[in-house]
Simulated assay, not measured.
Amino acid sequence: MMTRPRHSRLKLLLLMALFAAPLLSAWAMVTWRVGIPEGRTAHGQLAPELPALADWPLEEPMTASEHWVLAFDCRGDCAAEADRWWRLHRALGREAPRLERLRIVAAEAMPGQAALPGERLASWRSPPAWGEPGALWLLSPQGEVVLGYSPGAPLRDVMDDLQHLLKVNPERGASSN
């Protein structure tokens, strides 16, 4: 008869341990920083301090659209850079329609520029202090700068970030399977 209560207590203790184990392991991970990844997933620099696209000093103000925007500062001769970002856009495959490219050129160079397919052209009214020739920015559909890249950013890094953002931000109206 004595084994019955002892057996019930043992079951209760095991059940309590089962529910407490995840909490204890999470507390240990946070306290001793064990098992928590230190690496970043974004290759670009987070840029929440930059103004929204509508506030950029462009000749013709741009507004937010329903697409992600890949904007790059092209103040000099940057046909190779424009082609590079066009190829990245094409490499997105079926996700390509979710991205627009915005090439921002110097005001005096605007008449001689021709837009590549899927690209919009704009010119700086006055180049901003935060802008840099050759810089690249990834903007959300709301026009907010998400990531910024320095000139000459590796194509693979930008592609990884862009694919990740498109994956974790599904298209509006798309049904989830």
Rank of each mutant, 00 (worst) to 15 (best):
P154M: 02
V69W: 01
A106G: 09
A79Q: 12
V69C: 08
D160R: 09
S8P: 03
P117V: 00
W137Q: 01
T41C: 02
K167N: 12
A174M: 12
L162G: 00
S8K: 10
T3L: 09
R33T: 08
P111Y: 11
R75Y: 01
M1G: 11
L14Q: 12
N169F: 15
W68D: 10
C74Y: 07
H89K: 04
A91I: 01
N169T: 15
P57G: 06
W130C: 06
L138G: 05
F19M: 05
E49W: 08
V145T: 11
L24R: 06
S150T: 13
A64N: 09
G173K: 09
A153S: 09
P170H: 13
T3F: 07
L15M: 14
T41V: 15
T63D: 14
S65G: 15
P170L: 14
A20R: 05
M159N: 07
P51V: 11
S140K: 14
K11T: 15
G44D: 04
V146E: 01
L92V: 06
W86G: 02
E49Y: 05
L53F: 08
L139Q: 05
G134Q: 02
V168N: 08
H67Q: 14
A64R: 06
D161N: 02
L24I: 10
E100M: 07
D160F: 01
Q113E: 07
E38N: 10
W137M: 09
L24Y: 06
R103W: 00
W137T: 00
